[in-house]
């Protein structure tokens, strides 16, 4: 198979962040983002500090900033929603650049933008520093049901296969003069989708038979129980701890 090793969002490097076990990083990410979400709205200085803490982690991770920034386009739909909020919201109006907008909506939109951006950046940092198999091992370690971890492992393993299959069908369609334009192209594309399902399902059956012939009895060997040392836990806990204190300080100021 010509699929690349690792996935597109992984950035190969040797940093303390890359070396941390997956479960520490996943837990740190979830706690960090929870702290960010729990920060009171309008406390823009707190979001600035959160961002600063995240930039600190980015520097430690040795992932170049453009690598993360370029991939942040994924949040575009919400930027649009956040920009619309000031116009959709009710309450007292205020003037911004000559436009009359709702004050509450303006702050809600800005807060949403801050929280969403921090969340996306933190998730991208996890994806950039953790290989898929480490994320899986981490989730297994965090006691995600084994069945779910297995499904996820299979999905990740065959993601590129399904994607490549779709790419080949696209090339085949286009080399026969097909152009994806208008409603008339839908049945053709959907038929490719149907073919993709049949091929995926049949591949699943073959994979299952291959596994049975190698002695599969319903459980997979563990993905490797990597225990984290105390130092690693302390390293991982640093970012959420900083975020928690920022959030608490923001609540203190707001109260």
């Amino acid at each position: 198979m010509g699929a690349a090793h690792g996935h597109r969002l992984y950035f190969h490097a040797h940093s303390p962040l890359h070396r941390l076990p997956g479960h520490c990083k996943v837990l740190a990410l979830v706690t960090f983002v929870l702290c960010v979400v729990a920060t009171p709205s309008r406390a823009y200085w707190a979001f600035g500090l959160h961002a600063l803490a995240l930039v600190g982690v980015l520097v430690v991770s040795r992932v170049p900033a453009p690598f993360i920034v370029k991939r942040m386009v994924v949040e575009t739909p919400f930027v649009v929603f956040a920009l619309l909020l000031p116009f959709m919201s009710t309450g007292p109006r205020t003037d911004v650049l000559g436009l009359s907008v709702s004050e509450a909506g303006l702050h809600a939109g800005l807060t949403l933008l801050c929280k969403g951006t921090l969340g996306v950046a933190a998730s991208l940092l996890l994806a950039a520093t953790t290989e898929p198999r480490d994320i899986l091992a981490g989730l297994e370690r965090l006691r995600l049901p084994a069945q779910l971890v297995q499904i996820m492992a299979f999905m990740i393993r065959y993601l590129d296969v399904a994607g490549a299959e779709m790419g080949r069908m696209k090339i085949a369609r286009e080399s026969r003069g097909f152009q994806a334009k208008g409603l008339r192209s839908w049945p053709v594309v959907a038929r490719s989708g149907g073919a993709l399902f049949i091929r995926s399902y049949e591949r699943g059956e073959r994979v299952h038979l291959a596994m049975l012939s190698r002695g599969y009895a319903g459980t997979m060997p563990s993905l490797g129980e990597v225990a984290a040392t105390r130092v690693q836990w302390l390293t991982a806990i640093m970012l959420p701890a900083v975020a928690l204190s920022i959030s608490l300080a923001a609540w203190g100021v707001a109260a």
């Binding site: 492992a153 999905m155 399904a162 779709m166 993709l196 399902f197 995926s200 596994m211």
Partner: peptide, 23 residues
């Protein structure tokens, strides 16, 4: 039955690929 993991995994990969179709 016991086919759940490989089958659901492949179908999940299919759904992921289908979600990339925009209309």
């Amino acid at each position: 039955d016991e086919r759940t993991a490989p089958m659901a995994g492949l179908v999940a990969a299919f759904i992921f690929a289908m979600q990339m179709l925009n209309f």
